[in-house]
Computed example of a mutant assay.
Amino acid sequence: MASGPDTSEARRTRVGVLYALAAFFMWGLAVPLHFKLLASIPAPQILAHRIVWASLFALGLIVAFRQVGKLIEAVLSRKRLLLLGISAGLIAINWLVYIWAVNSGHLVQTSLGYFINPLLNVVLGVLFLRERLRPAQVAACLLAGVGVLVLGISSGEMPWVALVLACSFGFYGLVRKIVPVAPLVGFCVESLLLTPLALAYLAVTFADGSAAAFRGNVGLDLLLVLTGFSTAAPLIWFAAGAQRLKLSTIGLLQYLAPSGQLALGVLAYGEPFGWIDAVAFGLIWTALAIYTGSALRSAPDR
């Protein structure tokens, strides 16, 4: 009988790893491939469809999981609604830049953004949450900054796509950290807040004849509808994985997504990746290794 709890915990961990792997597979490979199939459509239209269909998908899950009461509670709280409005704006910026970047041949930069993001989170924690940095974390952040600077000097401009993605998602995470709502409820409220703007924009495209959807191309229409699933599903799987796994485990697994994006951009789509890029990414990967090692040494068992 003594092996029962251990077996239960092992099963919980296995399920958590499967959820996390599914989420990071979606973000690293399936989502960019999905948007590549929609490359003929302007990024703002893809974003608008993503918002509308994600809202419907999230609402369906809210009803299925019987969380309507929690959704109403979140909407009726002025403070929560204001904060979720800010996070909605941040995630909309992140989505728009990501969609544009994927379909404009900048997958390598998107991967850079999400490699930088964990280190930016550390800085935001210090600036806004009064968290303390260990010496290894300071070194990691400085090293990552050097990597970004190398890319900027080599290309003649800062890697703005990577920086916008990292900053928008970093501040999004900061806001969501201080809003006391469940992940699904928060995501649903954010989507619903953005939906009126998305619908208004789509109405304009239909009025001026520039709309790409519902013009007789059933395959394209289906791909647009599925943006709701590809947006909501990995977020829900990630939340399910995070509930079952150590934070240190999630921290390690999260690098799978930008690794997939990098491999996809270089190997599948032939995006340039020269020796200077290798040096810059090497510095950032070294920074991540230092940061992760420090986090693992100081992380509690749960």
Rank of each mutant, 00 (worst) to 15 (best):
L199Y: 05
L194K: 07
F273T: 08
T227P: 04
L193H: 06
Q137W: 04
A54L: 03
R50N: 11
A280G: 02
R78C: 00
Q243A: 15
A182H: 11
K79G: 03
N103I: 05
S230M: 10
V126W: 03
G145P: 01
W27I: 00
V126S: 03
I51N: 01
R244P: 01
I41F: 04
W237T: 10
G4T: 13
E73C: 07
V17H: 12
F214T: 11
G282A: 04
V148Y: 07
V189H: 01
P258N: 02
A213I: 11
S294A: 15
W160N: 02
G16T: 09
V225D: 05
T13P: 00
L21E: 12
R302C: 01
G60M: 05
G16H: 10
V15F: 01
V31G: 02
L76S: 15
L96S: 12
A198K: 05
H106A: 07
D6E: 14
S155F: 12
H34D: 11
L222H: 08
A295E: 08
A299Y: 11
L165Q: 01
I86P: 06
V63K: 08
R80G: 00
L120C: 04
R302S: 13
K70V: 07
A232L: 15
Q109N: 10
G216R: 01
I46N: 08
I41H: 09
R11K: 08
K177D: 06
N117R: 12
S77A: 13
S294F: 04
S210M: 04
L143C: 15
L262Y: 13
F229R: 00
P272Q: 06
N103W: 07
V108M: 09
E9K: 11
A23I: 05
E157A: 15
G28I: 05
L84F: 13
V68F: 09
G270Y: 05
F115Y: 15
L120K: 00
V218W: 12
A207D: 07
A233G: 01
V15Q: 03
E9R: 14
T286L: 12
V17S: 06
I93Y: 01
G270M: 05
V122Q: 06
A289S: 13
T292I: 14
L199M: 14
S111P: 02
L29R: 07
P42A: 08
L56Q: 12
L224A: 04
G60Q: 02
L253K: 13
K246I: 03
F25S: 15
H106T: 07
P196W: 12
F238V: 14
D301A: 15
G265L: 01
H34W: 14
S248F: 08
